[in-house]
Design a protein around this nucleic acid. Structure first.
Ligand SMILES: NC(=O)c1ccc[n+]([C@@H]2O[C@H](COP(=O)([O-])OP(=O)(O)OC[C@H]3O[C@@H](n4cnc5c(N)ncnc54)[C@H](O)[C@@H]3O)[C@@H](O)[C@H]2O)c1
Ligand SMILES: NC(=O)c1ccc[n+]([C@@H]2O[C@H](COP(=O)([O-])OP(=O)(O)OC[C@H]3O[C@@H](n4cnc5c(N)ncnc54)[C@H](O)[C@@H]3O)[C@@H](O)[C@H]2O)c1
Lengths: 220, 220
DNA sequence: AGGCGCTTGTGAACGAACGCACAAAGTGAG
DNA sequence: CTCACTTTGTGCGTTCGTTCACAAGCGCCT
């Protein structure tokens, strides 16, 4: 389930506050979900709660971490160390959540050889060697969009089977490779869509009209 | 619909390649979705296709842009100009997709006053004034997690009604405010989950066991 | 020891979204 | 003009996920 990481974050926050026990209701509101949904999600991992009491925070942290495969550290390579790649490489939040950035790769001669967050940037030529050397299964693509697909293919060929893509393109990969994309422009556009709708439906698209009609129908 | 921005991107790419007409099948595969789903999505905006031919690319770009509210530029404020805030402020992909970054705000004395991407960073004190001055409806939070909720409340109080949050916290907002979050750690954790499953179910969590049993049941 | 109150785990109903498959509609060739 | 071909728009069955609601289980208080 894609919600486990959210629960895990809420749980670790609680653990830091020295909370030992939490009810599904509390945890659900901290994670921003329905409590029945949370209980059902957790029940897929097994019965780790105590009726009448709730869940033991530390124990649940462990179980969820195990389920997510975070009891070990995953080595990661970042390809493309422009603005975004720099930010990612310097971000401490990955290391503390089960990931270890092990290799940085870029094509730009000016960037290659520089040190970022204690790691030396290697030239693109060494991509495959870095992946093999560190046994890297997870690759991050932070290159310009036009080269993302090519980088993706090289990562896959080298043995990477999970990719986090920041470039605004749809990557084509074999079935066994998992891709997730983070696209900030799309997020903003979705916000703009809702924002526009708030301004009043009359001056806008047909989708809004349809929604307005629906609202009318409901209110009568 | 949350898929419209993806279609829009595929369409603009096609437009740049001087493609004038596209079938639902082609556009769907470029966007990575089922063609029936794409046609149904587009039909919500109206009937802009021609049977036997397909969709006119330029016309569809315009219709989708209008639906998303991208015929105008949306002013945006970024709060927190650390690594990530810098990357965002310098990113050209926003301006070309209907957004104009109009204000940068940070609490750090060393950052305030510096110029990033042609814009001067203003102190947090001026947040409300900047929002009002530019009529900003969309705010981006790139501050450390502990202050994100507080910043969020100030943005909302100042009149911002859509927020893009990069801090790893669940923001609490009034119903009429739209929040979207981008959480890179969560994306990585989801990848780790799938990665772990590939390694073989025997040494892992109960969720995997359940899936394995299911697979057994199906194959017999 | 027994009962009371609280919280979990889940069966079942509901609803939304997906995708198949086809009729309707347009194009172009003969 | 007609026919064969292409592609849209959509009705409908199906699947997936969410939520309600409640029985089962646990701890605590008496
Ligand atoms: N910066 C942001 O805030 C932001 C936001 C959304 C999306 N993105 C996307 O993320 C990607 C990176 O953005 P950025 O702002 O860091 O861009 P950037 O131009 O600052 O950095 C790109 C980096 O990739 C390197 N590169 C180019 N070709 C390469 C190749 N073939 N192999 C390896 N490295 C190569 C460049 O040398 C450069 O260091 C882009 O696709 C962009 O669209 C960025
Ligand atoms: N850098 C990444 O790649 C990355 C990845 C995932 C998530 N994030 C999240 O994004 C956020 C920012 O990350 P970062 O790497 O840029 O951190 P950072 O520490 O580099 O930058 C944080 C910035 O926020 C400013 N700030 C602090 N308190 C403030 C306040 N009250 N008001 C306004 N500004 C304030 C600081 O002065 C600093 O400039 C964090 O919440 C982080 O968890 C970052």
């Amino acid at each position: 389930m894609a919600r486990l990481p959210i629960y895990l974050r809420a749980l670790t926050t609680l653990a830091e506050e020295a909370v030992t026990t939490v009810s599904s209701e509390e945890l659900a509101s901290a994670a921003g979900v329905n409590s029945a949904k949370l209980r059902k999600d957790l029940s897929y991992l097994g019965s780790y709660g105590t009726r009448g009491v709730g869940y033991d925070v530390d124990y649940l942290v462990y179980q969820v971490s195990r389920e997510l495969g975070l009891t070990q550290d995953w080595p990661v390579v970042i390809v493309g160390l422009g603005h975004l790649g720099h930010a990612l490489a310097n971000y401490g939040g990955f290391a503390s959540r089960g990931f270890a950035i092990r290799a940085l790769v870029d094509a730009d001669a000016a960037t290659v050889g520089t040190e970022i967050a204690g790691l030396r940037v290697r030239h693109l030529d060494g991509l495959e060697e870095e992946v093999r050397k560190h046994g890297i299964a997870i690759g991050v693509i932070a290159t310009p969009a036009p080269v993302a697909q090519e980088i993706c293919e090289r990562l896959v060929a080298a043995g990477v089977s999970s990719i986090l893509n920041f470039a605004p393109v749809v990557l084509v990969v074999p079935d066994e490779v998992e891709v997730r994309k983070v696209d900030m422009s799309i997020e903003l556009q979705i916000l703009a869509f809702h924002e526009q709708r708030k301004l009043g439906p009359e001056r806008h698209g047909r989708l809004n009209d349809a929604v307005a009609e629906l609202a009318d129908a409901v209110s009568t």
